[in-house]
Design a protein around this nucleic acid. Sequence first.
DNA 1: CAATTAAGGACTATTTTAGTCCTATTTAAA
DNA 2: TTTAAATAGGACTAAAATAGTCCTTAATTG
Lengths: 149, 149
Amino acid sequence: MIRVGKLTDYATVILSVMAKDKNRVFAAMEMAAVTGIALPTVSKILKILVNAKVLMSTRGSKGGYTLASEPENITVAAIISALEGPIALTECSISKQACEQASGCGIRANWHLINQTIHNALESVTLADLVRPLAVPEEIYIPVASLYQ
Amino acid sequence: MIRVGKLTDYATVILSVMAKDKNRVFAAMEMAAVTGIALPTVSKILKILVNAKVLMSTRGSKGGYTLASEPENITVAAIISALEGPIALTECSISKQACEQASGCGIRANWHLINQTIHNALESVTLADLVRPLAVPEEIYIPVASLYQ
DNA sequence: CAATTAAGGACTATTTTAGTCCTATTTAAA
DNA sequence: TTTAAATAGGACTAAAATAGTCCTTAATTG
């Protein structure tokens, strides 16, 4: 299975709750209570999302977290890369060095294509789509040839 | 990073070598020599690919492995799921049980959409594309709405 | 100034993944 | 019919990645 860590899954749960009431400020403790995820873990995720600019935070009493942009503008690609790093399936897609080292390479340029295809797919889905479960979005066309420029 | 294990990466290397000479029978030892991947590891991967029907094998002396179908008909989705299991980013996409257990769910139906989108993307790339590195394929359109039926 | 809340980082435990090895089975050829 | 060359299957170990926790510091409000 191509996988994404549990933390990323938790992040979508947390962000979905926040998106449903997008102007509120949520404290970490509150999110832990609502989602059932342990507080230290929720905190960790929230901090990561702030660093990735998906969330904004305010410290001090009455502080907490809010969405940094409209749910329509927060893509699944952004959420996943916040928690998992750059979207890429293999090392060599990230650094060419790693690629050159391995023998038998020359194929791997194509992982790049695969990664781009997936990245585009993930950019086409937003947090707004996630909280609007059964809505049918407009058709999205992904011209693969555009990846080869 | 959304990731795929090293074994999957190795598998693409091995399969690419085989696709370039698609009617030959390759022994595991030969593949190890050509790719530089250790023999036990190569063997493990080849066995997995046979189980997934991506390769065919013949035992005994002069035995070895061959592609089970034309490179055009072996999709990247097939290769990845052979090594990683079903293509899905989260547990709950595979079993609904896992989904129901977690609190705060209801969002996760949408992971299903994301998984389908990725799966379609991976089905659109074949082994033939991998060995024809710089060719520009025809445009491929992925109508996301079709996933909602 | 006290209470509340986030930031940052270090650390541990758990789980997954990679990699190896052993034994059994099949086939071809001498 | 025996030997050599292959794959099949599974058990096991080691290494790496991930999840999860905790502690100390910093900021804000009343």
